[in-house]
Design a protein around this nucleic acid. Sequence first.
DNA 1: TTGAAAGCGATACCAG
DNA 2: CTGGTATCGCTTTCAA
Lengths: 372, 372
Amino acid sequence: MTAADVAQAVGVSRATVGFVLNDTPGQTISEATRQRVLDAAIALGYRPNSAARALARGRSEIVLLVLPDWPMDYAHGRLVEEFAKALDEAGYSLVTWSPREDSHARPLWERLHADLVMGFAPFDDDQQAGIRANGVSKLFPTPDQYIRHSAHWLAITLHLQVDHLRERGHRRIAYAGSPDPRLAAVSRDKARKVAARAAFHGMEFAGERVVDVADGSADRAVRAWVEAGCTAVVACNDYVAAMVAGAALRAGIAIPERLAVIGHDDSPLARVVVPTLTSVRIDAAAAGREAAASALHELGVRPLPAEPDPCAAVLVIRESTGGTATGTEVPCRLIPHDTGHGHAPEIRQMSPSGDGHGASGSGSGGDPVIGE
Amino acid sequence: MTAADVAQAVGVSRATVGFVLNDTPGQTISEATRQRVLDAAIALGYRPNSAARALARGRSEIVLLVLPDWPMDYAHGRLVEEFAKALDEAGYSLVTWSPREDSHARPLWERLHADLVMGFAPFDDDQQAGIRANGVSKLFPTPDQYIRHSAHWLAITLHLQVDHLRERGHRRIAYAGSPDPRLAAVSRDKARKVAARAAFHGMEFAGERVVDVADGSADRAVRAWVEAGCTAVVACNDYVAAMVAGAALRAGIAIPERLAVIGHDDSPLARVVVPTLTSVRIDAAAAGREAAASALHELGVRPLPAEPDPCAAVLVIRESTGGTATGTEVPCRLIPHDTGHGHAPEIRQMSPSGDGHGASGSGSGGDPVIGE
DNA sequence: TTGAAAGCGATACCAG
DNA sequence: CTGGTATCGCTTTCAA
């Protein structure tokens, strides 16, 4: 079924068919033939050949999002969903792809011809060359854009974790890292940022320990932390937090009285385990929308808003740090402002919603972000 | 950077460039020009235009996998990973896509030109028409292939759940469904199969209840089940199982003594919660490989093996039904054989591995699958 | 108001 | 051994 078939069926040229089917502006087609073409197209079940269309127009209306090789957490999944939705509304399709490092086949961006290739992590030079070489493909994010969109939010949530423990009166904390080898690097990075924030508050930081439920390292870690006088643990994510809480439970260490735990991501898991987990999350939907705004700007669809939306983060206080089972949400807003040497986000806690258990006024305005 | 540019740089025709770059058989190019072309291509950073290539060759070496609209569980994720890997090894790229039901944009298979479109659920007629109309795209699965690949495994794992409870001596069981509205249909379907299996064993089935931790329905369900004399609950998935276990814990109902719980999927969650959850899983890697075998057959790359691999399922017995915290794995094999009216899978339990807590010999050979 | 024709960039057939 | 050239299906400019 080609456009030529439709043209022949109607008795017009294939150019006319193209004009009608694409609503080409600046052309005047009589309403009669217009309808005949439309009807014939439907009757024949005509669909334009996407490869030919992409070749002729030079664009495919596809955005390729390259996923990181580490397992995505819940918030990232939500972000991608919202991103896809916003792109869809603008007429673009989002394709997600996880590159395989052990693959010698050509990367997807060399066989897909996307209009735009985005990634969670910056692309290295080889990749950039491959992407750029492929026709009209545009590349995003550039490193600084990446930082603007992701590292800030990460810093915010890590600060929220530490600040919350500080407010609860903890003076000596530790960091629980993920056993997943692919998360090792990002986990370590988080630990550094947490250490810096703890130092800023004058808290003692007892270092990072990778915990796993399979090899008993969680049990050992919990015992070691308590012996070392730690009263609270910042976990890499909710899974790790659950492992810590579970190990403590089995060791007879009361949570949160003797050891408080705070997770990261506010995944569904945090609500279903016993005790329920205090956690932090970003507004994934807003993040996805802002990513879409950047993408659509890059595609030349709309201009980029001058000011990015202030990104919202939320602290959810549940049982693992002394809150209620259902939890209390404490929304925070980041007001980005440039201090000359990097970004110094100001965290402003807003009035807590829920049952009033929320902490108030972390008041860390204007302090520098350490370790970035 | 087009092939013409490379040709000009080297001083040959673009046909020659094409022959060299594609290793076209049946052509004899002198090693000298061959090298010059190759060098020039690298020096100029030439990458073939994927749209043009797809148009000319009629195929893109891309397989499109349409994801279901319900949230995928852990095993499905593993399956997709393995599927992608197997395709990659055959030189194909896997693109996954989640259609948006509220989208009026054209579906991805109409703008991507995949060689093959697969889905987790069968496509409806409109979708099939759209996919078929799009060039050489092939369609998979057809409904019966779909059943062969997925429904069997589902039935197996559900049987494993019920059989295990039966062996533990439970006579009256209930089903805990997921609160996720997108899972409602599949959850109900599972409940029916569980009911049938329970009836086969002469067990009483107390019906399905949707449980959620947010609205207190989990607490109510647990209480109701205990009052109704149920001693065990089959959960739709591990999340639901965790909610049931948590609610029981909070209500002071001992697990597994007064209420046993068995999950589905054997996700990481099952290992981290307290108590750890008994669960069932399929060999997702094998499933992914078989899906890839089907796909590659459909693509004409290799013939399909006459007999599908016997699919393996595993029961992991953990604390929530009386096992140990780390769990005991009981592998099972499905030997498919047709009895004339539908498939009647025989489940053969193999000798348990681990600490010997495993049940032995469910011996349900040859019994009919009810409710399919 | 419609149609002819020139690309888009690569593949592959058939001469030379 | 190498180089024209038709083809893939659609878009788009220009002429009729």
